[in-house]
Amino acid sequence: MTHSYDRRTALAGLGATGLVAISPSPAMAQGLNLGSILGRATDSALDRLAQPGAFYNDEDVRIGLPMLGNLGSGGSSGGFLGRALGAASRLGGLPGIDDIIRGINDAAGEAAGLAKPIFRDAINGLSFGDAPGIIREDDGGTQYLRRSSNDRLSAEFNPLVDTALTKAGLHDRIDGLASKNSLLRDAGLNRENINASVTEQGLDGIFSYIGAEERNFRKNPLRGLGNLLRN
């Protein structure tokens, strides 16, 4: 009897805070409200991508080198820039493209590990009542976050990417390659477009992982509350 009372009391308290919807609605089936689900999904996604090698080892989110517009027409990773770097490596004994791509992906992972506050701020600024249809989509919160906050997140994630690339010495390495290879110089490769490309691709990967986490939380909305509900 005591356990039943405590469980009802806990659920009522969670309902008062908005963590559990005590009403016969889709939100009750989810258990947690969408803001809570999205926040937890984002934290989990960023933690996963911050692990060493996470970006590079997952081909679905692996970051390639900038395409630099429509220059070149090959299908290899990195497009024109990838082929130019490959040629530079063969001709001048310079570092290979794979090593640089690994470094870029590691830098993106380091940036992801620092990005929780900017994603949390973006989520806290959302008004989910403005888009009631998102409750019906398995990754509706993720889609809404990207539509509503992508520009802001890009602007705030870009400096984290720049810092990580600089710390890893990747800007200097690519500048060094460009100074020795006319293809890279003519392509106009610079810090700004490298940062922009890595930022865009990094966010693509992050949102892909957030969407997967949101779908998992919706299927098992009380994950993480099990100990409380068993008391």
Rank of each mutant, 00 (worst) to 15 (best):
D47Y: 12
Q51L: 15
A187S: 06
F128A: 06
I97Q: 11
D130E: 09
L49F: 03
F157E: 09
T2Q: 12
G92L: 10
N70G: 00
E156L: 15
F128S: 06
G92H: 08
G109L: 07
G31L: 02
D162E: 14
G13M: 14
A108L: 10
A88L: 08
L32V: 08
S4D: 14
P26K: 08
R83K: 03
E156F: 11
R120D: 12
I210Q: 06
P24M: 09
D204G: 02
N33Q: 00
G133L: 06
T42D: 01
R83N: 04
S36P: 00
I37W: 01
F80Q: 01
G103N: 07
R223H: 13
G92V: 04
L184E: 07
F119A: 11
R223I: 14
D151K: 11
G205T: 05
Y209K: 12
L65H: 03
G125Q: 14
G15H: 13
L222F: 15
I100L: 14
G176E: 06
V20Q: 11
A107P: 10
K116V: 12
R120V: 04
D47L: 15
G188N: 07
L126T: 04
L203A: 02
G13K: 12
A45N: 02
N105P: 09
D151T: 09
E200H: 01
L65F: 05
N33H: 00
R230M: 13
R230D: 11
P132M: 05
G133K: 07
G141N: 11
G188Q: 05
R146V: 06
L184K: 05
D58S: 03
D43M: 02
N190T: 05
A178T: 05
E137M: 13
I206E: 04
L183D: 09
L184G: 06
S4Y: 11
R136D: 07
A41M: 08
L34C: 01
A27K: 00
G53A: 11
A131E: 06
L177R: 08
A155F: 07
